[in-house]
């Protein structure tokens, strides 16, 4: 059960996410393996991505298996925007966090017309979950 709280009357943050998310990165750069609660919370956050993305296969958006360490726009079999292909980004904790905060500001002509995950704790947790799952042996065996 997540407890929601209003901060400054403007931002709504789930407290459970906040407490988990702050510990999602060991040193601010590398993902540590998520514990069960954090994994579950990250999985729940990933639900927001499921309108366009899946780990195992390309949809409206590219698949996320193999995302960690992949150069943006380089996945075979998916038609990326030129902006994404030219971005020079390699996906890691820092780049994914920055992109998901405001995709259209980081890559102005990206096809991902999404405002971003603004809450730092939620985004940190989502990034950790995505990068961990992107190398899952079970889920991404074909990578």
């Amino acid at each position: 059960m997540y407890v929601w709280t209003l901060l400054s009357g403007l931002f709504i943050v789930p407290q459970a996410f906040a407490s988990i998310g702050n510990g999602a990165f060991a040193d601010g750069a590398e993902v540590v393996e998520l514990d069960a609660d954090s994994y579950s919370a990250g999985e729940k956050l990933y639900g927001r991505c499921k309108g366009c993305h899946a780990f195992e296969y390309n949809r409206v958006g590219p698949k996320h298996c193999g995302l960690k360490g992949r150069r943006a726009g380089s996945l075979d079999g998916y038609r990326f925007s030129e902006a994404m292909k030219q971005s020079g980004i390699v996906w890691n904790v820092e780049t994914l966090d920055r992109f998901l905060k405001s995709p259209t500001k980081v890559i102005p002509r990206t096809s991902m017309g999404y405002g971003g995950v603004k809450d730092d704790a939620e985004r940190r947790l989502l990034v950790a979950y995505m990068l961990q799952e992107s190398t899952s042996q079970e889920r991404c065996a074909d990578e």
């Binding site: 639900g47 927001r48 499921k50 309108g51 366009c52 993305h53 017309g113 999404y114 405002g115 971003g116």
Partner: peptide
Amino acid sequence: AGLEQGAVSAYLGAVPL
């Protein structure tokens, strides 16, 4: 349900853009 949930989030993310 997963697709619809994702669609809600996608539109929510698009509205301000």
